[in-house]
Simulated scan of single mutants.
Amino acid sequence: MEKYLQCFRNVPMTLENKTEKDFERMKISSKGIWTINSIGRLGNQMGEYATLYALAKLNGHQAYILPAMANYLCPIFKITLPTLHDSVRNKIPLKGYNLHDWMDDQYRSIPGDYVSLSGYPCSWTFYHHIREEIRREFTFHDFLKEQANAFLRRIAGKRKNVTYVGVHVRRGDYIHVMPNVWKGVIADKKYLDTAMAYFRNKYKNVIFAVTSNGMDWCKENIDNSEGDVFFSDDPKQSSPADDIAILAHCNHTIMTIGTFGYWAGYLVGGETIYLTNFTLPESPFLKLFKYEAAFLPQWIGIPADLSPLLPKKTSN
């Protein structure tokens, strides 16, 4: 419990205890109040936070996060944005403003001092110009950093000069959602074999640290014939916070699909391999999603095998 209490001792100032007069003075002297919806899981929350941070700064306003986002992020990262509590939020005439998943020129001049952004933004196009600031915002608390490094040291054993490759395999609800809703696929064994072969061929002493919400599938399908694959499924250390800390402290990244893996690659800053072209051309997903806005240009995309989505050929 002590390690979690430490996370909140230096949490930025909130607006919870301000009086009406205090609030009126703030309205006059401050740079307004901008916030964003707190929806989705950890990867989405990080995307929303980074987007709010960047757009509020670009437009010259003060950003605040909602309590739900603070509850998600404060126990993991040393974020600096203050929290806008409901007791104050309900008194502010915030103007709603919906965002695409990617940056648009119109977002450089969003009108209003009191704005509530909405959407599921998770694109480097919003904030890559201040990348180092964003990466500092997502500095891990010391106890998570220590746990991640201890795990990596343990799996390295007596190996020297190890190159760590973090692997995130998103499964869970995507197993059904991708083919049935979005007309797409998730990563298969062939994709992971190809991605891992790239790093095995390029670097010496490679170790793969695998995180997933479908670990049983990973253990059955990931080739560990070389004894260089380790799975982070310790029940005492298996949470989204622990997993992303492990991934972020590796040297390179293999992601599949989803915002969680994206953020691992973005924080690491090494080489990242991702699954690309994972939907049929007519997928409704492509109305909401742009590959070129989702993945950095220098990242390496491996096209997905879409054959499971195609009609089965029948023999006469």
Rank of each mutant, 00 (worst) to 15 (best):
K3Y: 13
L5Q: 13
Q6P: 06
F8S: 08
V11Q: 11
P12V: 03
P12Q: 05
T14Q: 08
N17H: 14
E20G: 10
K21I: 14
E24Y: 10
E24L: 13
K27Y: 10
G32Q: 04
I36N: 00
S38Y: 03
L42N: 06
G43V: 02
G43A: 03
Y49V: 07
Y49E: 02
A50P: 03
T51W: 00
L52F: 03
K57G: 09
K57T: 11
L58N: 10
N59R: 04
Q62D: 15
A63Y: 00
Y64D: 02
A68N: 12
N71A: 14
I76Y: 02
I76T: 04
T80C: 11
L81A: 00
R89Q: 13
R89K: 15
L94W: 03
G96W: 09
Y97G: 02
D113F: 13
S116L: 15
G119I: 05
G119F: 04
H128A: 11
I134L: 05
R135M: 12
R136C: 09
E137Q: 10
D142R: 15
K145E: 15
K145I: 13
K145R: 14
N149G: 10
A150M: 14
L152T: 01
I155S: 03
A156G: 05
K158G: 09
N161H: 12
V162Y: 02
H168M: 09
R170S: 02
H176P: 08
V177T: 14
V177R: 10
P179E: 02
V181N: 13
W182V: 06
K183S: 10
I186L: 08
K189Q: 15
M196K: 01
M196C: 07
A197V: 10
Y198N: 07
R200P: 01
N201R: 11
N201L: 11
K202W: 11
I207G: 02
A209I: 03
V210W: 04
N213E: 04
D216A: 13
W217K: 01
V229R: 00
S232R: 10
D234F: 07
Q237F: 12
A241Q: 09
I246F: 02
A248S: 15
T259F: 07
G261W: 00
G261R: 00
G261F: 01
G265K: 01
Y266R: 00
Y266S: 01
Y266K: 03
L267A: 05
V268R: 00
F278A: 03
P284Y: 09
F285E: 05
F289H: 08
A293I: 09
A294Y: 11
F295D: 06
F295H: 13
P297L: 06
P303W: 04
D305Q: 07
L306N: 02
L306S: 07
S307M: 11
